[in-house]
Amino acid sequence: MLTYLKWGFRIFLILLVGGFLHYTLPQHDIVRITNAYNRLTTVGANWLFYASPDTGTAEGTETRDIRFIDAVFADGSVIVYRNEDTGWVWPPYFKYDSSNLQAEAQNSKSSAAAPEWVSVTHYGWRFPFMSIYPNAVNITPVSGPDDTSVPWINIIVLTTLAFLALMIRRMWLQFRERAIDPVLADAGEAWDSVDAKADAARAKARGVFGRIGAWFNTWRSPPRR
């Protein structure tokens, strides 16, 4: 039972961290942009997947003017991105040029007859059920729908995270070796000496008179350590 719990917890943790990284790290899509517009959108229970509001708003739902970019993949499936500024704190993209990006998207609109393929750098998930959209960060023209690119940022970020995890583990081990273990060893020795004293006292208090004498002795001040 406990093994199931342990493994279940570990798998849950891996899914959580993996999902968080998959949402936050940038990805590239090769698409053809079909439309760029903005639309009043109500942000309610899915507020977590939108940028934080610019001004303080009432609780519950709020309606905002959000820029969207429609695009279509080479195989015909469609996707809709939103184009919002990120805050200055999270996610750490420091994006504040969404107006410019919208203009670039307008400029890259093309039809199926004369397609213009672009690579959209984005983060986030398109999950229609919750009305959440990935946030487009950059648009770069590419030569064709078969273009591939190496995800440099993802490689750097994941390598740095792995390095940090390793360093934290080493710091913890060093701390345990230098600070905690010696104290525990001392505590162990202290307990052993208390045990030895108790055994010596018990040995002295044998027999009826031994026990009475031992009790009288407790009225005296305790022996110095």
């Binding site: 750490p92 993209y93 420091f94 994006k95 504040y96 040029d97 410019n100 960060v137 950059n138 770069t140």
Partner: peptide, 12 residues
């Protein structure tokens, strides 16, 4: 890193 990110994201 923050400065480089700002440049790459906003001034492409």
């Amino acid at each position: 890193v923050v400065a480089i990110t700002i440049y790459l994201v906003n001034y492409q």
